[in-house]
């Protein structure tokens, strides 16, 4: 598909929009529909479109596999880390009320961090899986 100019130009225009939309879904998930799971998948969809149009080799240089592997673990560590932090603050595991003086502000902060962790791991796993399948065909 590398030689189709319409596809390449349209992809170049809409990929940044997809990524921006994913960030909107991630950080606006408290107020409208959205959240970490959706944002991670949409973010990965942007990269997958890039891989489909420009080839997996280009995608692999855009997001190197060793970085992806770090991000897969990073999201889960961030999520569990929030739980450990609340434990260290002498509250229950994942009891976000302890994160701040004001319980509601603590909940906001906790949900923000946890959703970020979900988004990072889901996005990285989806890109990894796509690279695994699409990269299998390479000569």
């Amino acid at each position: 598909m590398n030689d189709n100019p319409v596809l390449r130009i349209v992809a170049k225009i809409i990929i940044p929009m997809i990524l921006l939309f994913a960030l909107y879904v991630q950080f606006h998930g408290d107020y409208g529909p959205g959240g970490g799971f959706q944002a991670g998948v949409i973010f990965a969809a942007g990269f997958i479109l890039y891989g489909l149009v420009f080839g997996t080799e280009a995608l692999r240089s855009a997001v190197p596999p060793h970085i992806l592997r770090i991000f897969i673990a990073l999201g889960l560590v961030l999520y569990a880390g929030v739980g450990v932090t609340t434990l260290l603050m002498e509250a229950d595991f994942l009891a976000y009320n302890a994160l701040s003086q004001d319980p509601v502000a603590g909940q906001h902060l906790g949900i923000f961090l946890v959703e970020l962790g979900v988004g990072i791991t889901v996005g990285a796993v989806m890109i990894t899986v796509f690279l695994g399948f699409a990269g299998r065909n390479d000569p």
Binding site: G35, F37, G40, V41, V122, V125, M126, V129
Partner: peptide, 10 residues
Amino acid sequence: ILTAIVVGVA
């Protein structure tokens, strides 16, 4: 179901 969908694709 939201979480089940994403776990399903994984």
